[in-house]
Design a protein around this nucleic acid. Structure first.
Length: 306
DNA sequence: GGAGGCACCTCTAAAAGCAC
DNA sequence: GTGCTTTTAGAGGTGCCTCC
């Protein structure tokens, strides 16, 4: 069985690792001392303590200077990598330069948030050839672990700080846009023209992104509607609405976008209801990261232009 | 909280070792 | 033997811990 000697870090002076690194570079105690801005005897003493701690001569005199032992050579790679990591950890992070950066960001976004944000985001994104954006559907279980691990950078969607909210309160949040529901139906749909408002007993389409039977509109307006068709995403809604007698309550920006491409009428909901608030959510660990800050600014700017 | 003791580190000066 | 480098010895400074 291999005999493993473990060094007690509590009693090991980690500054000695800098001395060891300098000795690798200089192959001379005197020059290592100069590099470390120590006296030569102090460096010699540090070497002695290293030898004592690691139970190895580490460096021996030779014609070419202080020659490393096999044990010292085995330490060199891991040691320089560890020192480099520590150096990087202590160094102020460089600002994110999107024009020259190479990175892929991952957004987990609801159908609704994608429709609102992505068109504007894509317009500004093409200026940064090395920066990619990957959008994934918002999973049924809130991706808290993915946000913490960095597998997902941002979550976009409608989350309320209320009972039943799936998003942990520990996450950072920022409001992107607020919008209201509108009613959408085929051009000339008679139900949308009634001055007293739409008869909710008429058959309707309901977009339930996570497969539920109650929409945000229902929750907000506390209405009982005659929903005859449920669909998990917005993609088919304009085709169905423009070619049938069904109508639907949709977020206004989504509805206006559909009406630009399909023969649809859009009318305001007469009954007052709280607005939909699309937010971006991220883990506090990413709060100060320059690249992540840049991403959040881009998403916010895109949402404000939407 | 302050004083005293202890351990550790670094310094200077001097001795010892090594290569040529 | 000479010159360069390393090691050792002793002193001073600093920080931590314990005790009052």
């Amino acid at each position: 069985m291999m005999d493993i000697q473990r060094v007690n870090l509590a009693s090991f002076d980690l500054n000695l690792l800098r001395v060891l690194d300098a000795l690798f570079l200089e192959r001379s105690v005197s020059r290592a001392a100069a590099r470390l801005k120590l006296s030569q005897p102090a460096t010699s003493n540090a070497l002695a303590r290293l030898r004592d701690a690691l139970e190895d001569p580490l460096f021996v005199r030779s014609r070419e200077g202080m020659a490393p032992t096999p044990r010292a050579l085995a330490l060199r790679g891991p040691l320089s990598a560890a020192l480099r990591q520590v150096q990087e950890a202590l160094t102020e992070p460089l600002p994110f330069e999107p024009a020259t950066a190479s990175r892929t960001f991952v957004l987990a976004a609801s159908d609704h948030a994608q429709l609102v944000v992505l068109p504007q985001l894509a317009k500004q994104w093409v200026r940064y050839p090395g920066v990619k954006l990957r959008v994934v559907p918002l999973p049924r279980d809130f991706p808290t672990a993915e946000l913490e691990s960095g597998a997902v950078d941002l979550v976009l969607g409608v989350f309320d700080l209320a009972p039943g909210d799936r998003a942990p309160r520990s996450l950072k949040r920022q409001l992107l846009v607020e919008e209201r529901f509108v009613l959408v139906g085929r051009k000339g749909h008679p139900a949308l023209r009634r001055p007293e408002g739409v008869d909710l007993r008429l058959p309707q389409l309901h977009v339930a992104p996570r497969g539920g039977s109650e929409s945000a509109y229902d929750r907000r307006s506390k209405l009982q509607r005659n929903v005859v068709l449920y669909t998990p995403h917005y993609l088919v809604a304009p085709w169905v609405l423009s070619s049938t007698e069904l109508f639907a309550a949709l977020p206004e920006r989504v509805a206006r976008r559909f009406a630009e491409a399909f023969p649809l009428d859009v009318v305001p909901v007469k009954r007052p209801h709280p607005p939909l608030r699309i937010q971006q959510l991220w883990h506090p660990l990413r709060q100060g990261e320059p690249a992540h800050r840049w991403l959040r600014e881009q998403v916010l700017a895109a949402a404000r232009r939407a």
